[in-house]
Amino acid sequence: MKKIAEDVYQIPLMPRNSINCYLIEDVLIDAGIRSSATRILNAVKDRNLSKHVLTHAHADHQGSSSIICNALKIPLLCSELEKENAENGTVTIEYPNPNHFISKFQQKFWAGDGFKVTETLKEGDRIGGFVVIETPGHSSGHLSFFREKDGILIAGDTLTNMNLLTTIVGLRQPPNLFTADQEQNKNSIKKLVSLQPKVICFGHGSVLVNNGDLERFASKI
């Protein structure tokens, strides 16, 4: 577990930061794939978590959610539009091609069981010191989280900081194969630009200290 800022920690779940989850204060954001549970539980074993929140209910973010929530006896939260998938565990249905072999692989081997959502989140709600930002596109109910006092942004999969095939570092839009509406997602990226984040944490890729990188990237999409 790597400290990013005050009360913000990255938990890398795969090599080269290819899948990440985050601890913000006493809240776990995302939970990797099904096999990530042990790594996450070991990382947070000395901490008292109050809740688990999803940026979105894709297989590489909710894979361990049911295991984590059951083990720690904590509630699951997400947006209203992600609730059904989070609860039934069918997490590739919104992909442009859910019958693609990669989609089927993710559903079979990465996705976790569904878990009851205790509370839904919307724009302007707060998770500790972070405000909820609705950033649809990659999925219909995708959420990001922003802390105004120091500019920390949990961006989920609104964009990535790596090429998922080569693992080369760099800002990219999420892959079309897993993105419900790429045009809507571009608008969400521009929405995040307006926040002027100083540090950006991604579902895929290393944490970025933003020195104009996001603004330059967004100007070209």
Rank of each mutant, 00 (worst) to 15 (best):
E6G: 08
D7M: 03
I11P: 03
L13Y: 00
S18F: 00
I19W: 00
C21G: 01
Y22Q: 01
I24N: 02
I24Q: 02
I29A: 02
D30W: 04
A31W: 01
S36M: 08
A37E: 09
N42V: 15
N48C: 14
L49F: 07
L54W: 01
H56K: 02
H56M: 11
A59L: 08
H61F: 08
S66P: 04
I68S: 00
I68N: 00
N70W: 11
L72W: 09
P75H: 10
L77P: 03
E80K: 14
K83F: 02
N99G: 13
S103W: 05
S103E: 08
K104M: 14
F105W: 13
Q107A: 09
K108T: 11
D113A: 14
G114Q: 02
K116S: 09
K122F: 11
E123S: 15
R126T: 11
G129P: 15
T135K: 11
P136S: 09
F146E: 10
G151F: 05
I152P: 02
N161D: 11
N161S: 15
N163F: 05
L165H: 07
V169M: 05
G170N: 08
L177N: 11
F178H: 07
T179H: 10
N185G: 09
N185L: 15
K190W: 13
K190S: 15
K191S: 13
S194K: 10
H204Q: 10
S206P: 00
S206M: 06
V209T: 12
N211I: 01
L214C: 14
L214Q: 04
E215V: 12
A218F: 10
